[in-house]
Amino acid sequence: MKNMKILTTTVLCLLLSFFMGTTAMAESITSPDGQLKLDFSVNTQGEPVYELFYKGKEVIKPSKLGLELKNDPGLMGGFACIDAKTSTFDETWEPVWGEVKSIRNHYNEMAVTLNQKAQNRNIIIRFRLYNDGLGFRYEFPQQENLNYFVIKEEHSQFAMTGDHTAFWIPGDYDTQEYDYTESKLTEIRGLMKGAITDNASQTSFSPTGVQTSLQMKTADGLYINLHEAALVDYSCMHLNLDDKNLIFESWLTPDAMGDKGYMQTPCQSPWRTVIVSDDARDILASKLTLNLNEPCAYQDVSWIKPVKYIGVWWEMITGKSSWAYTDDVYSVKLGLTDYSKTRPNGRHAANNDKVKRYIDFAARHGFDQVLIEGWNEGWEDWFG
């Protein structure tokens, strides 16, 4: 398991002016293999800005970072960089289950401390650069002027270098069950209406909003994936596209009040991830997301036994079959209706013949469980 031992730490104390008319000199780190390079700076408005390069080519153009807070001036600007610490980490750990027996967790890190002079408070932006990509997150130390706060919106930008080909599904607070659309970034707006197919629960939020993980391919064959990791006590991130300037910006899922996060310091955001490669297979094989999640909390994992299952599910979602055993839905009362006396509609996917075929298939191919979604009392006696 991950022991998280820091192997090398270099402290860079930055004696920078607090006057916002001065731009801070960029701080940089590279990936362990030197192929990826991250530049960080604070612009003349005191806004944090990062930029990412792969093999000397720009992958993420200068992109701003920050958070808009409720009933608060926010954590968007007015910052000065007062400290930057770099370190290197390298370990190999064993996952509880997965495609491989062991995973190498090797990265170079930079933790930048920013002071917001007007509010007299600090935040930390932590960057980790792996051979296959970047992870960054916001950290909020406990302090007098930043204790409880409510996130109105996170404004993490991902500025693209061109009108890339994207493989996307519509941004939606309630479902991810859409077919993927392949298009240029500038075509998303025009294709959005047709991409939103009927589903049981839908709340789309923008004509250019898409979900993570978002896969893209550049004109010169570079693959880019935007996602998140370690999503704990925080809202799920979507991406909203400024299709004129080709800039994605984080868009968090709100609660019923419209708020997007209730925070108490010390705390942190999830990691925002950018996986990069000129080989599409590397995106799928990347372990960056696993490495950025916290280590397994269980010391003894010998009792965890991975299994395989098969289930009746997707044809009900796509509309091929019905969720309901009967169309007489207004006469159904859960726990009371005698389904043997109701009129079946003949379109319910979890019927006896189909389930028997699934059970037989699972038995032949070594599946441990058969999951019947959309189940109801009509077959309880048959299965015992």
Rank of each mutant, 00 (worst) to 15 (best):
I283G: 01
V332K: 00
V307Y: 14
D278T: 04
Y298T: 04
P306I: 02
I275P: 01
Y298E: 05
L284P: 11
W303Y: 02
W313C: 00
V276C: 01
T326W: 03
L292R: 02
D282I: 10
T289D: 08
V329P: 00
S331R: 05
V312K: 03
A285M: 07
S321Q: 08
A285H: 07
V332F: 04
V312R: 00
W313S: 08
V301A: 08
D282P: 07
I275M: 01
A285P: 00
P295G: 03
E294G: 15
V332I: 11
E315A: 13
S322F: 07
Y330E: 14
W313F: 14
E315L: 12
S269Q: 11
R272M: 09
Q299S: 06
A285D: 05
V274Q: 12
E294L: 15
Y298N: 01
I317Q: 11
P295K: 10
D279Y: 02
T318I: 09
N291E: 08
D278V: 02
Y325K: 01
I283V: 13
S322H: 04
E315W: 10
Y298G: 03
K333D: 03
K305L: 07
S269E: 00
Y309T: 14
Q268N: 06
L290W: 15
V332G: 05
S269P: 03
Y325H: 08
A324G: 05
Q268K: 14
I304L: 07
P295A: 05
G319K: 03
P306E: 04
S321N: 15
Y309W: 15
R281D: 11
R281W: 02
D328S: 13
T273V: 10
T318G: 09
W313Y: 15
T318K: 07
W303C: 14
Y330N: 10
P295D: 08
V301R: 11
W314F: 15
Y330P: 02
D328V: 04
K333C: 07
T289E: 10
P295T: 09
S286D: 03
S321Y: 15
R272D: 08
I304G: 12
V329Y: 12
K333R: 14
I283S: 02
D300I: 00
K308G: 02
L288Y: 05
P270T: 01
A324D: 15
G311R: 06
Q299D: 14
I304A: 10
P270E: 08
E294Q: 14
V332L: 12
P270Q: 15
R281T: 02
A280Q: 09
L284E: 13
T318E: 09
R272T: 13
I275K: 08
D278H: 05
D279I: 05
W314C: 00
E294W: 13
K308C: 12
G319T: 08
L292G: 04
W323N: 07
P306D: 02
V274S: 07
S277E: 01
D282M: 02
V332Y: 01
K320Y: 10
I310S: 14
D328G: 11
V301M: 08
T326F: 14
L284W: 12
D328W: 06
E315T: 13
T273K: 03
E294N: 15
S277R: 01
T273L: 05
V274T: 12
W314R: 09
L290G: 04
P295S: 06
S322L: 06
I304H: 03
W323K: 03
A324Y: 14
V274L: 10
S302F: 07
